[in-house]
């Protein structure tokens, strides 16, 4: 099932066309990986999926992005609600300088989700979901910044899932992490896809090959090829894809 359907998306930073005519169907509860060299538009594309680019002055979007069939760029779209449904995890872990508990409780408090249940339950459930619970349960009041980088990134994932999103966007979520933390996040992603649709931007092609079900290659603002990960990495259809993933371009 398609969760997000992107049709003929163009994105401009002022006069610069950063994305040109992108169409892609992002499948529900699957991991979609976006690869390509720096500046190819993959992060811009990711940020179009929950209107994170809205805050950048001088940008312009054409085309449609349908989340469950609803155009998220339609006038009157509740952007805060959109970002609850489509959460984001960034390149460097960015926990708030507060306790572990408050980090995870932040979203539910703002959105008033805790009124339906105990806030502590939501926090525990989210930390368990991000496979961090066992490591922090004895001291939820500890400063989030005292955690290791890998733990901080899992905390950010817990914070993202605390507001019960449907889609999680990940922009290079492992680039600041060591190999063990990276593999842990990848394992976590495989668990999370049981409940969430995940879109990940990564510079690490092997990571895309390892975790994603679908892979798209961006090049100079265009989507060169999009397909099942196993096909992209064993037998891509486009010569450009072949040259990129075999390291003959870049």
């Amino acid at each position: 099932m398609t969760k997000i359907k992107v049709e003929h998306l163009h994105f401009h930073y002022g006069d610069f066309l950063a994305l040109s005519d992108i169409s892609m169907a992002i499948k529900e509860r699957q991991i979609t990986g976006l690869i390509g060299p720096s500046g190819c538009g993959k992060s811009t594309f990711l940020r179009c999926l929950n209107r994170m680019n809205d805050t950048i002055p001088g940008t312009r979007v054409e085309g449609t992005v349908l989340l469950d069939g609803q155009d998220i760029y339609a006038p009157g779209t509740a952007v805060v609600e959109l970002r609850r449904r489509v959460g984001m995890v960034f390149q460097r872990p960015n926990p708030f300088p507060q306790s572990v508990f408050n980090n995870v409780a932040f979203g539910p408090r703002v959105l008033g989700l805790h009124r339906n249940g105990r806030l502590a339950d939501i926090v525990e459930e989210s930390l368990r979901g991000a496979v961090l619970w066992d490591e922090v349960k004895n001291d939820l009041r500890q400063d989030a910044l005292s955690l290791s980088l890998g733990q901080q990134q899992r905390l950010c994932i817990a914070r993202a899932i605390a507001v019960k999103p449907e889609v999680i966007l990940m922009d290079e979520p492992c680039s600041a992490l060591d190999p063990i933390d990276t593999l842990q996040i990848e394992e976590l992603m495989r668990m999370l896809k049981e409940s969430y649709t995940i879109v990940i931007v990564t510079h690490n092609m092997q990571q895309a090959a390892r975790v994603s079900d679908w892979t798209g290659l961006f090049w100079l603002g265009e989507l060169v090829e999009f397909g099942a990960t196993q096909d992209i990495f064993t037998n891509p259809k486009q010569e450009l894809t072949e040259n990129y993933i075999t390291g003959r371009l870049g």
């Binding site: 092609m205 092997q206 990495f233 064993t234 891509p236 072949e242 993933i245 075999t246 390291g247």
Partner: peptide, 9 residues
């Protein structure tokens, strides 16, 4: 070397 695509084949 983590070969891909044609190299892997």
């Amino acid at each position: 070397q983590q070969p891909m695509a044609g190299d892997l084949r």
